[in-house]
Write a protein that binds this DNA or RNA. Structure first.
Length: 651
DNA sequence: TACATACCTTTCTAGACAGCATGTC
DNA sequence: CTAGAAAGGTATGTA
């Protein structure tokens, strides 16, 4: 099937042909046959880089009205936004947390690119543009499987369907065990394909030989080097590039350093580009590795360094990239050879094998269409049985996607949001909405009953939901849902604000402690050597904290992580530069950025809640009603801290 | 004395979504 | 409190 055969406006056909797209790839043709251009609901399960973006565009451009493209990552949103913006006479909007500066509404846009959370939030806040959407494309639906974020996606899709029942839906998925089940839930036709635009061979390295799935073998003699090093050198000798996946940041950096010393390439320009303003240990290490044509990639990198590395690798200035899983699911950075060196990851309960789906996604990065003759992906068997690895990852099908809605955390948030958003006014309406979720499709929805009861009691007890004749969210509950924080965070903040209101000394440190001690803030790892110093600091400044430092109830160690995070932010606000933060706390520049971003969000959410409490309209007022004045001090400190944070973060 | 080497002990561990309003050149 | 590798530390060996 050719692009010119499609029932698309001529300008779009011209546009695609101008990009060299003339005939459709087989999976794309199958999607068209399934009806994506006729407004039909379709689930397309196909490998990454097999042309999903075109499938999405065909559906969106032929839809009878505006389209919404839902992605799991901001970086992906930006990438798609740029791609779609090239389309002639199509106005594209982007809705993600980091494009907040745009004050616009999306009513005028033909295509809106958004993260699933942003869509959820837009629905919670009753944004008008959502109900006008004629076609929704969901990228990476297998995210339904993700603890934490999967439930948001399924509840959002259920709500979307309720809001706009005749909406077209196209869901794009990686190859998973039960794509048919997902399609069934969505009332969509399933299109499956394993076709790739470039051949992929997968294999396992064991004792000097890589044995491929097609029976082929390649001898790689490591000599005295680690096998992975030899595998990298081997593909570079052949004129290719290598992408190495490891399981920790430290590994990514140290392995990159050891490879950089071999000078596969010299990339002085890249190195100088990185070195400029690279004051932290991470930045310096990156520049040094780049000197020898090697890069590393993990979430501790500054956004700028990340994109320099990605681009340099794409332009082949770097021969090797050592990466944590940031690169497996993110933007497209392909290489001829993908080496999965570590197939286990630390989880808090020891080391666990990586999910098959994740390893396959790493594999999928192998081979640059049109540039490499083929792609090859290999696992390294060190100290484990190669046959076992092969069985688990090479021939095997990925795991099934299983709803994670049956968790306290997920239901807490989404039950509140459902009530606050007016999707249900009593228990049976709530159950009704829940019965349209993926969970209900896979399992018996009554399995949720006990958890929902428990969650409702919690929300009632914390003053977010009222249970009388029916169910309704209180003002506080609506507020918590609207600012998009976990109800646990909402409750913790209400309580801490009450304590703070009665305190003599409320400082920046106080409000930072409040927001850092919530579910929505990720806290920093406390090194053993730091623990003493931190606890001393806490003792010394006890009167500024809302928690009783001297007779602490609960887990003091984990609260120290809160204190550490608060201190980092306090220092950052005071103007301490990233290099010093790195030195003092061992925190990488990318992490500082992320902490600051979250802190700003949580400070503003806390502000909204504090305002509500000081208005006197709050039903739950931990302090006595005559002490309104005290909230004002806390509120002032919150606003001041957030302003200072914005100031520093904007440079 | 300087420095290999072997062996034992300690340390540390991936990623990343979300709100909102106002002023300014 | 999980597992495992790197980094750190110490005792022993060698020129």
């Amino acid at each position: 099937m050719d692009v010119s055969d499609l029932s698309l406006a001529p300008k779009f056909i011209e546009h695609f042909e101008g990009l060299g797209i003339e005939s459709l790839y087989p999976p794309q043709a199958a999607a068209v046959e399934a009806g994506i251009t006729r407004g039909d609901r379709v689930v397309a399960a196909m490998p990454t880089a097999s042309g999903k973006t075109l499938v999405a565009q065909l559906a969106m451009l032929s839809a009878d009205g505006p389209a919404l493209y839902v992605v799991p990552l901001r970086a992906l949103a930006t990438e798609k936004y740029e791609t779609f913006s090239e389309l002639p006479d199509v106005s594209v909007g982007i809705a993600t947390g980091d494009y907040d500066a745009e004050n616009e509404s999306f009513d005028e846009d033909d295509i809106v690119v958004a993260t699933s959370e942003k869509v959820d939030s837009a629905i919670r806040n009753g944004a008008s543009w959502v109900e006008a959407i004629a076609c929704v494309v969901v990228d990476e639906v297998h995210l339904l499987n993700a603890r934490g974020r999967g439930p948001t996606l399924e509840v959002t899709l259920a709500k979307l369907r309720r809001l706009v029942p005749d909406q077209q839906l196209v869901a794009l998925s990686a190859t998973v065990g039960n794509a048919a089940e997902i399609a069934d839930w969505l009332d969509a036709e399933l299109v499956r394909s394993t076709w790739r635009p470039i051949d992929l061979r997968t294999g396992v390295y064991d004792d000097g030989t890589v044995t491929f799935d097609d029976g082929g073998r390649r001898t790689i003699d490591p000599g005295d080097d680690p096998p992975t090093t030899a595998m990298v050198a081997d593909v570079i000798d052949d004129g290719g590039q290598a992408l190495v996946f490891v399981n920790s940041r430290r590994e990514a950096e140290t392995f990159a350093r050891s490879l950089g010393a071999r000078e596969f390439r010299t990339a002085p320009d890249v190195a100088t580009g990185i070195r400029e303003g690279a004051t932290t240990s991470t930045g310096r290490a990156l520049a040094e590795a780049a000197e020898g044509g090697v890069g590393f990639h993990h979430a501790g990198l500054r956004a700028e360094h990340r994109s320099i590395v990605e681009q340099a690798f794409r332009e082949r200035d770097l021969a090797v990239l050592c990466a944590t899983p940031t690169l497996a699911a993110g933007v497209n950075v392909p290489a001829r050879r993908v080496i999965v060196r570590d197939h286990e990851r630390f989880t808090g309960e020891g080391y666990e094998p990586l999910p098959v789906l994740e390893v396959h996604q790493m594999f999928g990065r192998a081979g640059r269409p049109g540039l490499d003759p083929y792609g090859e992906a290999m696992l390294v068997a060190t100290g484990v049985d190669a046959a076992e690895l092969r069985e688990r990852y090479i021939g095997a099908e990925p795991e099934r996607v299983e709803s994670k809605l049956d968790s306290r955390e997920a239901l807490r948030t989404h039950v509140l949001a459902t009530l606050a958003g007016g999707f249900a006014e009593n228990r049976s309406e709530l159950d009704d909405l829940l019965s349209s979720t993926f969970f209900a499709h896979q399992r018996d929805p009554s399995e949720l009953t006990d958890l929902v009861d428990e969650v409702l009691s919690y929300l009632d007890a914390t003053g977010m939901v009222r249970r009388n004749d029916g169910l309704s969210a209180t003002d506080l509950g609506r507020l918590v849902s609207r600012v998009y924080v976990d109800p646990l965070t909402g409750a913790a903040v209400v309580e801490a604000l009450g304590t703070a209101a009665a305190m003599d000394r409320v400082t920046t440190l106080t409000v930072l402690e409040i927001i850092c001690d919530t579910e929505d803030m990720s806290t920093q790892y406390v090194r053993t050597e730091e623990a003493g110093r931190l606890s001393e600091f806490a003792m010394r400044n006890a009167e500024q904290f809302t928690k009783p430092v001297h007779d602490f109830e609960g887990n003091f160690q984990s609260w120290l992580a809160t204190v550490k995070t608060a201190r980092i932010l306090d220092d950052w606000i005071a103007g301490v530069d990233p290099a010093d933060l790195d030195e003092r706390y061992g925190v990488a520049p990318g992490d500082v950025r992320r902490l600051a971003e979250r802190a700003e969000w949580l400070l503003s959410a806390t502000e909204v809640i504090a305002e509500h409490l000081s208005d006197g309209t709050g039903t739950h007022r931990p302090t006595d009603p005559d002490s309104d004045v005290e909230y004002d001090t806390v509120l002032e400190r919150l606003q001041e801290t957030r302003a200072a944070l914005l100031d520093v973060t904007a440079e």
